[in-house]
C-alpha cells in the first residue's frame, strides 16, 4: 500500500473517534487501520429511522475536516459501518 504522508500530529484514530463523538454524542466508535486508511464502525441512535446513505453521511460530515485539504490525515475510509443500537444484540 502506498504511503500517504500527512502533517497531522497525534493519533489519527483518536481524532476520528473524537470528531464523530463531537457530532454524534451517544456514538460508540471503533476505528482501526493506519497509514491513511481506516475502517470505522459507529453505533448511534442517530441512525434510527435512517437509511444507510443518510447514516453514512452523518459520519462523513463529522470527519470531513480530517479528509480534506492536501495530505489529509484520512486518505481513505476502507470500510464504514453504521449500526443502529436497536439492531445490536
Amino acid at each position: 500500500m502506498s504511503d500517504h504522508p500527512t502533517s497531522f500530529q497525534g493519533s489519527i484514530t483518536d481524532a476520528i473517534r473524537n470528531s464523530i463523538r463531537a457530532s454524534l454524542t451517544d456514538a460508540s466508535v471503533e476505528v482501526s487501520g493506519g497509514n491513511g486508511h481506516y475502517s470505522i464502525v459507529v453505533t448511534s441512535a442517530a441512525f434510527e429511522g435512517k437509511g444507510m446513505l443518510e447514516s453514512q453521511r452523518l459520519v462523513y460530515s463529522a470527519i470531513a475536516p480530517l479528509m480534506s485539504g492536501d495530505g489529509p490525515p484520512v486518505h481513505a475510509v476502507d470500510s464504514l459501518k453504521t449500526v443502529k443500537p436497536s439492531r445490536t444484540v
Binding site: 446513505l53 453514512q56 470500510s79 459501518k81
Partner: peptide, 8 residues
Amino acid sequence: KFVGGCDI
C-alpha cells in the same frame, strides 16, 4: 439519484 459509495 445518488445511491452511495462502495460500502453501500
